[in-house]
């Protein structure tokens, strides 16, 4: 498998998305914005459609359109009376409709190519994409190092963060933009419709075992890398799209950990009850 150059690129891209996506996702889950990545994925579809129509590079165009979508989303949430989830739904529907319409207008093989972006494809990671994804991944890590503490304080409690002098609107926009960049980083391997899952499901799995935010983020990242590379490998040998394989593998790990921890909690509870003195 590793003798193929496209697989080497795809695997490294998978490591990048597996590593980064849960680190961004853990903040989204903390802020109860687990579906934000989905919304950004749909906006990125419009970006890919626009790239097909204008003949530009899909990764770059999707990145620009997604970040623009992130700013519009924050603007709608902050400046209008529209509720957060409603604002997300509006962006969600606008993105997918725009994407399909623009792709249709582009004609030719664009509709077939769009499918590869929706569910991921092993052969679509070009060298230029690879450089863009690597750069975006490094940028996300740098932002997390610089602003992670402020975003965490804001995610824990918006009002006390405001009293601490944290610019919560700026941090919130930064987090939404990071979700948008993560979506584009993952669109080649996991696909735009499922990339949000790799941000969220490893976090849900990790928090079955952890006691702190930091350990949840790190464990989720490790699970993300395992699922992204494992799913990609299965996809290579079984000839199925990588996106669904990666996501189903993540869900399997979540279910396994949820069942194991529930069973351990139950056993622990029974042991305590057995040790307690019987009163009759």
């Amino acid at each position: 498998m590793l003798s193929y150059e496209f697989m080497q690129r795809a695997l490294i891209a998978a490591v990048i998305v597996g590593l980064i996506a849960p680190l961004v996702g853990v903040f989204l889950v903390q802020r109860r914005l687990a579906l934000l990545g989905d919304g950004m994925g749909h906006v990125a579809i419009a970006g890919v459609g626009l790239a097909f129509l204008t003949g530009t590079e899909p990764v770059i165009t999707a990145l620009i359109v997604s970040i623009l979508g992130a700013f519009i989303l924050e603007l709608v949430r902050n400046k209008s009376k529209t509720a957060g989830d409603l604002a997300l739904a509006l962006i969600f529907y606008g993105g997918i409709s725009g994407g399909v319409l623009l792709t249709s207008l582009a004609g030719g093989k664009a509709s077939t190519a769009l499918n590869q972006y929706l569910f991921g494809s092993l052969s679509t990671v070009s060298t230029q994409d690879f450089i863009s994804l690597g750069f975006a991944g490094l940028l996300l890590i740098a932002i997390l190092i610089k602003f992670g503490n402020q975003i965490f304080a804001m995610s824990l409690d918006l009002e006390t963060a405001r009293v601490q002098g944290i610019r919560v609107t700026a941090m919130s926009t930064l987090l939404t933009s990071m979700a948008a960049v993560t979506v584009v980083v993952g669109m080649r391997t996991v696909g735009l419709l499922l990339v949000s899952a790799i941000m969220i499901v490893p976090v849900a799995a990790a928090q079955q075992l952890t006691h702190s935010f930091k350990s949840t983020g790190l464990l989720a990242s490790a699970i993300g890398v395992l699922c992204a590379t494992g799913g990609l490998t299965i996809s290579f040998y079984v000839d199925v799209p990588p996106g669904p394989t990666i996501v189903l593998l993540s869900l399997a790990i979540f279910i396994l950990l949820a069942l194991t921890t529930s069973s351990l909690h139950l056993r622990h509870k029974n042991e305590i009850q057995e040790q307690a003195p019987h009163t009759h």
Binding site: A153, Q164, R167, F213, K214
Partner: peptide, 17 residues
Amino acid sequence: TVPVSVFETVNAALVFP
């Protein structure tokens, strides 16, 4: 939502731009 330790909760109050 996500597990947060007592230490992290107090530590977050010391984040001042």
